[in-house]
Design a protein around this nucleic acid. Structure first.
Length: 711
RNA sequence: GCCGACGUAGCUCAGCUGGUAGAGCAGCGGUUUCGUAAACCGCAGGUCACGGGUUCGAAUCCCGUCGUCGGCUCCA
């Protein structure tokens, strides 16, 4: 799968979907649909601006919309607003709310609006020397047929389409939450503004509940759980964005792989294995270079010719000899006290200088001798430059498709071979920018549930549907109820730049894909201008319980790369034809999927996925009892159950506490009484004591739950 | 990459306006022999992210680097 598609918006932020409906592009109809809460928050952002102006009258404002969990206002202000300022701002906001000013709407002409903006009267408490520059810019961008309106609360007047609550007093409870920077109109060429975030609710209780919910959400944060449950770690020496899975985390990855392998095997996929690196030429061919180079780790240079190495070694040797001779010849007093020590401390540059000084002090003869030696030692280096300036470059792979295309091409293919489905849990490396790294969700090394399906146009629909079926099957298994398929299409005006210049193929592929999506009845939204450069794609967006939204999986139609790689199959009519390639990764990457599952389950994995499935807790450490415990352990392990014995000196309550904290799924508590009756006391995480069960029965139940991947 | 905040023991954190580090849990060693969410005693554990600077003296102040976090940007 070419993971380039695997990325949109995995940060907790206003969702992509709500982004389409963001304040700037809102039509009057959409505005009318603003919920009461959004209206309240939008009003709160005006109150925020009012308060900021009371403190810093020179502040310039851009946009201040409601967002998913609150509101913000973008402000341009020399003073850096920090959380320390929040109290001061909030105090002013409270005054404004207490004053209970009405929000008054006024419709004005475009000229009047421009006039006010020039006088600095927009998003301001009074006229000001500086014009309201951002507001003026916004006016320019309002469609001519749309009405321009102002809203006023107290002295504050703002260009705003509304709607608002009736009076500032209706803003019941609010709190400023953070401040961050944002580019005006999200364009990095524009000035950076300070974005002050806050949230507001009708009542204090709702506000408190919201913060309590955030506290709860923190407990589900995959980074926190990952550490607590000993699943994965990051290490400075290994590098940022390069997670290492501890045994408990690796166990989850292994289960996911097992799931994928079983599912894919049954669906006619074949597994392949490819190296983690490839030569530059592969990525030139695929088209990833130079366009994708920025997201790849810098290349490794490998000297192409053996003679290069030999010359290099000889050159170094001669150079060292030259130095030694020079030192011997022109520094007879090397043995004088302190000299060796002094030279020993010098680096090459200092030593060079020192030698030159000594030599020139010794006269012309010495200079000539030294020059001869220097030339001697440098000639090989010149030769070497001519022999082999060429290097071979290798790249860590950032995607698996080029390798898979090569495997397709490795053997002559007939239409009888299609569809050919090549699958691999390939490890890719991507140089994500430092600011983009985020726990396990956005990393620099990732292992993807990748596969490429090569098929004929006639087979496309069935293959595409089968892939979608697979997605849905997985979602059901994991209890993922909220998801959205984003169908990204191309923008015809960007053919040849952003998208391969194949208007007909784009049209065909997109129509084909759209039809399949419609027929399957899957919910999807269509997003223009976000396709991969080689074809339309479908990203699957999910929301973790924490409210984080990200692209979990992806599915792309590729008509371009097979051509670039000259992939062909011999059709019935004895003509060579290019197959369509479907890239797909229903389980995304291990990293992100595990991160998602952690938050999804709050670390309380179903038995089959549990890092530690069963822990045997003994009451006391009587040797006979320990034997009983070990025999149960051995039986479980013989059936591939991840089981442990807690043989610590803790009392039983302590052992239970620790097992519960580690979220061990099933605890088997055994004491003498159990041993004598050949039973175990079953305790399930989160469910408490389920009572004594015959040993065989308990084990059978565990095995059955794992086998069926029960919830 | 950009803006901002943060970085103290394995983890969670304390350490006031500068006077060379402290708790709980985890770990280790004992004791305890127990019935469904923490038995008791003791021990050990730190280049206060790293590197410079200011100072008689720096975890504390300043600068730089690295890393993490919150956003922004990117994500063909």
């Amino acid at each position: 799968m070419d993971g380039r598609a695997e990325r949109p918006s995995e940060r907790p932020r206003a969702s992509q979907i709500s982004k389409f409906m963001s304040e700037e592009r809102k039509t009057p109809e959409q505005r009318a649909q603003m919920t009461d809460l959004e209206r309240l928050r939008h009003s709160a952002s005006h109150v925020l601006a009012t308060a900021i102006l009371k403190i810093w009258p020179e502040a310039q404002f851009a946009a201040g919309p409601p967002v998913e969990n609150g509101f913000y206002y973008d402000v341009d202000l020399p003073h850096r607003i920090s959380p320390d300022d929040f109290e001061k701002i909030e105090t002013e906001m409270k005054k404004e709310i207490k004053a209970n000013h009405p929000f008054e709407r006024m419709e004005i002409s475009r000229d009047e609006a421009l006039e006010l903006g020039k006088k600095g009267r927009l998003a301001a408490l009074s006229e000001r020397p500086e014009p309201s520059k951002y507001k003026l810019d916004i006016i320019e961008n309002i469609p001519p047929d749309e009405k321009i309106s102002l809203y006023r609360n107290g002295d504050f007047v703002d260009l705003c389409a509304g709607p608002h609550v009736k009076r500032t007093g209706e803003i019941g409870a609010f709190k400023l939450t953070s401040v961050a920077s944002a580019y005006y109109k999200a364009d990095e060429r524009n000035p950076q503004l300070q974005r002050v975030y806050g949230t507001a609710f009708k009542t204090k209780k709702e506000l408190d509940d919201y913060f309590a919910m955030l506290e709860e959400a923190k407990k589900r944060d995959h980074r926190k759980l990952g550490r607590e449950l000993e699943l994965f770690v990051f290490d400075d020496d290994v590098g940022p964005g390069l997670p290492m899975f501890l045994p408990r985390g690796a166990a989850i990855a292994e289960e996911l792989e097992k799931l994928a392998k079983e599912t894919e095997f049954a669906a006619g996929y074949q597994r392949v294995r490819t190296p983690h690196i490839a030569r530059e030429s592969l990525y030139k061919k695929s088209g990833h270079l130079p366009y994708y180079a920025e997201s790849m780790f810098p290349s490794m240079a490998v000297r192409k010719h053996e003679e290069y190495r030999v010359f290099w070694e000889q050159w170094e040797k001669r150079q060292n000899e030259a130095y030694e001779q020079t030192v011997k010849r022109f520094m007879p007093n090397l043995d004088e006290p302190g000299m060796r020590e002094r030279i020993g401390k010098m680096d090459t540059r200092e030593l060079n200088q020192f030698i030159e000084q000594r030599i020139s002090a010794m006269g012309q003869e010495a200079v000539n001798a030294f020059n001869r030696m220097a030339i001697d030692s440098f000639i090989p280096s010149l030769m070497m430059t001519q022999v082999s300036p060429i290097e071979d470059r290798y790249y860590l792979k950032a995607m698996n498709c080029p390798h898979h295309h090569k495997l397709f091409a490795a053997i002559p293919r007939s239409y009888r071979d299609l569809p050919l489905r090549l699958a691999e849990y390939g490890t890719d490396y991507r140089y994500e920018k430092s600011g983009e790294l985020f726990g396990l969700m956005r990393v620099r090394s990732l292992q993807m549930n990748d596969a490429h399906i090569y098929c004929t146009p006639e087979q496309f629909e069935a293959e595409f549907n089968a892939v979608n079926e697979m997605y849905l099957k997985y979602f059901k298994l994991f209890g993922i109820e909220k998801y959205l398929m984003r169908f990204s299409t191309h923008d015809p005006s960007k053919l040849g730049q952003k998208f391969v210049d194949e208007p007909e193929l784009w049209k065909q592929t997109e129509e084909m894909t759209r039809r399949v999506l419609k027929d399957s009845g899957i919910d999807y939204v269509e997003v223009p201008n976000e396709a991969a450069f080689y074809g339309p794609k479908i990203d699957v967006q999910v929301w973790s319980v924490v409210g984080r939204e990200f692209t979990l999986a992806t599915n792309q139609v590729d008509f371009a790369q097979p051509r670039r790689f000259n992939l062909v199959y011999k059709d019935r009519d004895n003509l060579e034809k290019t197959p369509i390639c479907i890239h797909r990764a229903p389980l995304g990457t291990h990293e992100r999927f595990i991160g998602f599952l952690l938050e999804h389950y709050a670390g309380n994995f179903p038995l089959w996925l549990s890092p530690e499935q069963v822990r045997i807790l003994t009451i006391g450490d009587d040797p006979k009892l320990m034997d009983y415990a070990r025999s149960i352990l051995n039986e479980l392990r013989a059936h591939q159950v991840r089981a442990e014995i807690d043989d610590s000196t803790d009392k039983i309550n302590g052992k239970i506490q620790r097992a519960e904290q580690m979220k061990v799924h099933t605890m088997l508590v055994i004491g003498k009484r159990d041993m004598e009756a050949d039973v175990v006391s079953v305790r399930v995480h989160g469910k408490g004591n389920l009572g004594a069960t015959p040993r065989g029965e308990a084990i059978a139940a565990v095995l059955e739950s794992i086998r069926t991947r029960a919830k």
